[in-house]
Nucleic acid binder design. Structure first.
Length: 318
DNA sequence: GGCCAGGTTCGCT
DNA sequence: AGCGAACATGGC
């Protein structure tokens, strides 16, 4: 087994716990995202060369440092693989983001300002690939986050590549070829609806054959990205906006069709009712071009229990 | 048991 | 263009 350790210096302020918690969103041992005592092991699969990266935080919010341990079950851990792993970890944990412009905007905003307080150093985590984000987004459409978690774990542990490191089995996200091989029946077997299975297999087929270049979206403008994504069956505006934020690292995504977001805005503004999608979009313009951050901080605040009626799972209403 | 959940598409007016 | 139904499953 080959092993190497590198460090990453995130742009301060950087709060690793907040950022990693947002990425995983739940405790416990599930598939690709695990939080073990402050360690974040994750299996990355580089063209059939699975390697385990384990991230932990050293240093403080104002002087942050991440330590990344890279392990490969067999040999062949060369410099190229190490630097690639380092780049991927930096991307996944959003270490390069500079929050200063967003914080300057928030300081002069009565809604965003209080939101930022208490979440200092939260960066936006990213998915390992656009493809992964798209599959997860379709998987999570309309179903509760808990159900989405169950299905997602099944997907990863049933069809994802695995590797055993130090006696523990880890799973990577299933590559397109694995989903094509699973087929509609394979996805139905792990609680996908027929429709979602059809969408996901369709996407995986086109990605595997090279007809759909999702990673190439990194080079397109926000508008082009949205236009391209909307042409894919199973993708609506909500999914496209979500990908702008979580897969493509854009600063101004805003999923105004999101039910939870509409409710949060209603609570935050003491409206007594959820915002309509149009109201949400209209109101959000004041936060441009930092709406991805506002969205992320909103959900992070909600999860931390700052909106009592939502953390209880209750309805928002009169 | 019924209703709904961090949507999307399809088939009707 | 706009509206309702279907989708599949788990939690309350």
């Amino acid at each position: 087994m080959d092993r190497s350790v590198v460090t990453i210096a995130p742009t301060p302020p950087y709060h690793f716990d907040l950022t990693s918690a947002y990425a995983t969103n739940y405790p416990g041992h599930y598939g690709a995202d695990i939080n073990q005592e402050g360690l974040f092991p994750r299996l990355l699969d580089s063209r059939g060369h699975p390697h385990l990266v384990t991230v932990r935080a050293l240093g403080r919010v104002v002087s942050p440092l991440l330590e990344v341990e890279i392990e490969k079950a067999d040999t062949g851990l060369d410099d190229a693989l190490i630097s690639q792993a380092k780049r991927q970890v930096a991307w996944i944990f959003g270490t390069d983001q500079n929050l200063a412009p967003f914080y300057r905007m928030a300081m002069n905003d009565s809604v965003a300002g209080p939101l930022v307080r208490g979440l200092k150093g939260l960066h936006i985590p990213h998915t390992a690939s656009v493809y992964e984000a798209l599959v997860l987004a379709i998987l999570g459409q309309q179903i509760s986050s808990h159900v989405a978690r169950v299905v997602r774990t099944l997907l990863i542990q049933t069809y994802g590549p695995s590797a055993e490191v130090s006696g523990v089995t880890y799973y990577a996200f299933p590559p397109p070829e694995a989903i094509v091989a699973a087929g509609m029946e394979g996805l139905r077997a792990i609680k996908f609806s027929a429709r979602k299975a059809e969408y996901v297999v369709g996407i995986a087929t086109r990605v595997a054959s090279g007809k759909l270049d999702l990673e190439g979206l990194q080079h397109q403008s926000d508008e082009e990205v949205v236009r391209t994504l909307l042409g894919i069956r199973g993708v609506g505006l909500w999914t496209a906006q979500w990908l702008l934020i979580r897969a493509l690292g854009r600063t101004d995504g805003f999923p105004h069709g999101d039910l939870a977001l509409q409710r949060l805005l209603g609570l935050l503004m003491d409206k007594g009712a959820p915002f309509s999608p149009e109201e949400a979009l209209e109101y959000s313009r004041r936060w441009s071009p930092f709406r991805s951050y506002v969205t992320t901080y909103l959900f992070a605040a909600a999860r931390s229990g700052r909106f009592a009626s939502l953390s209880r799972g209750g309805q928002v209403g009169p």
